[in-house]
Amino acid sequence: MLKMSGLTKRYRTGDLALREIDLEVPDGQVMALIGPSGAGKSTLIRCINRLVEPTSGTVFLNDIELNALHRKGLRRARRNIGMIFQEYALVERLTVMENVLSGRLGYVGFWRSLFRKFPRPDIAEAFRLLERVDLDPMVDKRADELSGGQRQRVGICRALIQNPLLLLVDEPTASLDPKTSRQIMRLICELCKERGLSAIINIHDVQLARIFAERVVGLRMGEIVYDGLPDRLTPKVLTEIYGEEDWETTIGGEKTGGGDAGENEGDDEDAGPHPEKERLAGMI
C-alpha cells in the first residue's frame, strides 16, 4: 500500500505545487489523477519516487519510508516503482531490447550493464513482455524508428520488467491519437490486473479516466478536491476541479454513444453510464 501524508512541495521559485496531500492507494488499485495543467499532478507522482524532492511530509510504500532514504536505499526502492512517461522518454538511440532491459539497471552491476551482459532470465522476461504487448518483431529496431503507440508499449515493458509493486504513469496518452490512447490505457489496466499492481495514472482526458480507472482523484491548485468513484464525476465535480465550463458535453457526449442520451441528465446520484457500455463505445 502507498500512503502519503502531509506531502508538500514548494519549488524554489516559491510556487506551492502540493499542499499537505494525504492519500492512500491500496494494493491492486488503479487510480486516475485528474486536474488542470499546473495542478501538481506530475509533481505528486514525482515526489513518490523522488525525481522531485518533496519539501515536507512522508511517503510510505508498504513499510518503507521513501523520503527518509539515502542514495543506495532510494535506488533500491525505485526498483519497486515502475514509471511510464508522457512522450515515452525512451532512450531514442538505443534498441527496443536495450530500452526494455534498462528497466533492470537497478539489479545489474555497472560493468555488466555497460557491456549489455544482462542475466538470461532478464532477457527471457523481456522477450515475454514484448510478446505480451505484440512488439516481438521490433526487438532489434531502434526506439526512434517506432510509432507513438509502439514506443509507449516499450515504455510499459521497461516499467514492468522492474517487477514493481507500484506503477506511476504520467500522461501516458498525451501524445497519442484517440484510438491508440484507449488501447494503451486498456493495456496498462489489464497488466495491472494481471500482476495485482497498484497504479497512479495522471491523465488529462476525463473520459479515459472514467472508462478505465477504479477510482478518480481530482487535484486543483495542489489540493485534493475530489476522491471517489469515476461515475460520480458530475458536472458539478468537474467544475470544482477544472473551473466553470459546459461539462454536460463531456459526460453527455458519452451518454449519446451509450444510447441513453438525456435520460439521467442532471441526476447527480447515478450519473454516468455503465462502464461496460463506455468500453464498448471506446471500441468503435
Partner: peptide, 27 residues
C-alpha cells in the same frame, strides 16, 4: 526526460550516464 526515465528504474549514477546520456551524445 530520457535521463529521468533511466533514473526512475533505480539505476546508479554511472549507469544513468551510460544508458541515459552517452547514447544521446554519441553522434
Amino acid at each position: 526526460r530520457q535521463v529521468e526515465a533511466v533514473t526512475a528504474t533505480g539505476a546508479s549514477t554511472a549507469q544513468v550516464t551510460a544508458f541515459g546520456i552517452v547514447p544521446q551524445i554519441m553522434p
